[in-house]
Design a protein around this nucleic acid. Structure first.
Lengths: 220, 220
DNA sequence: ACAATAGATGCACTCGATGCCAAAAGGGAA
DNA sequence: TTCCCTTTTGGCATCGAGTGCATCTATTGT
């Protein structure tokens, strides 16, 4: 929608989502999120303030950028999951896959997530995004179990999946060396241990981590 | 601080938190949250707009009211939990106890929670409150395990506990007849079943519910 | 050159939030 | 009673996010 489809007529777009985000992040980095006004961003981009609001409906939406499009991918990942593995395994793998970035090329992603997770106004605003994300999971769970998305089990699974993902991200920001996929695995394992789940055989060898098992094992 | 301690000198307070909340909820009910301006609330209370902001630092804070004081109670409930029961059991019981209201006398509480959980602006704002609530749990878990509150396991437990509580509240609004404590129990049970936990003996007989077991049992 | 189209932008306005400061309202002591 | 001290009130000005409306501008197609 940014490059591919050129309108058949009409005034060309004065800027792009990408350009706005770059300018915005530049300002956020030097003045902080609260300290950056929409006027300032508009000036930096070289566009009218009113125009900015047509690209992003609110200042809080800028850091999330293209999240909507990403959700499509998430839905796809879930749909492609094999149906012969346990539901919890499928959901967990999908969450891991969704957050499996080029890893080393993640500095910009880390910066974005740090901004989102550490700025109060954005922490608050993000709930609305998380709700869409949870809906994707709830719908998948509901489909596999023959339930409605707003029933108890789909809701619980979606909400808990988000809880684990948020915890993993928190730790990811705290521990510069850990990888997100590793932390997601450890978070899930911690929960299982906490709830007293028997540590059964785990098909995906990548998720098992001696440290977390040792730490979590000391529970009670 | 509202009634007990009268200042030794100075102008008396023109209103109270309780009075403001009543007036505000009255207006929210008839015009909706977004449709109610701070000016309108101030007028309804019969006080200056500026004064309103000294009682509640933001419009979003009004529906939460006395939540801060409630948190003290929550901390207390956790501290009073017996240490000879499993950690997950202690946390769960504390969450249930914290949300165990007079039950039938809950219409006002239900109305408040409905407003909070269904108004986008409040959904977003509430994250900040939830964070404090999670901290209480994380600190308790950390203390019992000899860890720091910001480490993985305490974070996971706190975040998942919130996830379960939010799910239970969602269902509570959806199902007029169900009790919150029952829903919290069912949410926890659902999670255990989902993760493949063996349904072992449960010390507290109150949490087991045939319906939930049946529903959750149909997983896979 | 002209029409049609889609986007850009200025303007005015609402509303939440904040800093500053003078006025109001009570208690206590001279 | 009167004056002083204390505390809260609340008016005023200001900032910044958002929004509706009207108008202008840059392109493509005829």
């Amino acid at each position: 929608m940014t490059q591919p489809s050129r309108a058949l007529a009409g005034r060309p777009e004065a800027t792009s989502h990408a350009e706005i985000e770059q300018a915005a992040f530049r300002l956020f980095a030097e003045r902080g999120f609260e300290g950056t006004t929409m006027d300032a961003i508009a000036a930096e981009v070289g566009v009218g303030r009113r125009t900015l609001f047509r690209y992003y409906s609110s200042k809080n939406d800028i850091p999330w950028g293209q999240f909507d499009r990403t959700l499509e991918g998430f839905r796809q990942i879930l749909d492609d999951m094999p149906t012969d593995i346990p539901l919890h395994e499928a959901v967990h793998r999908a969450v891991v896959a969704f957050n499996d970035f080029p890893d080393n090329a993640s500095p910009p992603h880390r910066q974005r997530m740090r901004l989102i997770l550490e700025t109060p106004a954005l922490q608050a605003h993000s709930v609305l995004r998380y709700a869409e994300w949870r809906t994707v999971i709830a719908e998948y769970v509901a489909r596999r179990l023959g339930l409605e998305p707003d029933e108890l089990v789909p809701s619980v699974v979606a909400q808990v999946s988000l809880a684990l993902a948020l915890t993993a991200y928190e730790q990811w920001l705290r521990l510069p060396e850990a990888s997100l996929r590793e932390l997601l695995g450890r978070a899930m394992l911690s929960l299982r241990v906490h709830l007293g789940v028997d540590i059964e055989e785990r098909p995906n060898g990548a998720s098992d981590l001696p440290q977390s098992a040792k730490t979590s094992g000391s529970i009670e």
